[in-house]
Amino acid sequence: MDFVLDYISVNTFWTLLFIVHALLAVALLGALTHQAAAVLARPRAGVGGLVARFRSVSGPVYVTAICVLWVCTFVLGGWIYAKYRIYVRIPIEQEGLFKTLGAFELKEHLASIGLGLLPFYWHLWKNARNAAYDSARKWLTVVLAVICWYAFLAGHVVNNVRGFGL
């Protein structure tokens, strides 16, 4: 990747990488929230408001995109994580913001556990017509959506604390 640094500064490179990571996370959050809403509250016939339309998506359509987005967001996050450890975490430690650091540690743990669940989640949604999978599919989707929301918010808070320009 060194050739990139002939054109942009090191700070710009890592900032761009972080923005891509954040944009992927937004897309993942949106897709998983749609899917979780669809499994938690099935739309009722004749109700056509915004909420009903939000949850009336076809869950199986999202599954491959969600798995790809989770992996891509995770890989980019893992790449940035080494820089975070030196240039973000240490200053936050020096400021004594330990709860912020703890919230971020929990994010990395939960996102990792979620990563391991993706193959089974994919399998459940690829067999969405099988009623025997309904309960597991529903609750696993909800758990992954909650993890995604938590990871997004924890990452957002850390970014607010430290900001851009590593």
Binding site: G102, L110, A132, Y133, A136, V143
Partner: peptide, 19 residues
């Protein structure tokens, strides 16, 4: 099959304690 979503929930208190 329910272990897939129950295990992460069960692990949460352990993770919180580890932190």
């Amino acid at each position: 099959l329910s272990l897939a979503w129950m295990v992460p929930i069960a692990l949460l208190p352990v993770l919180l304690y580890s932190l």
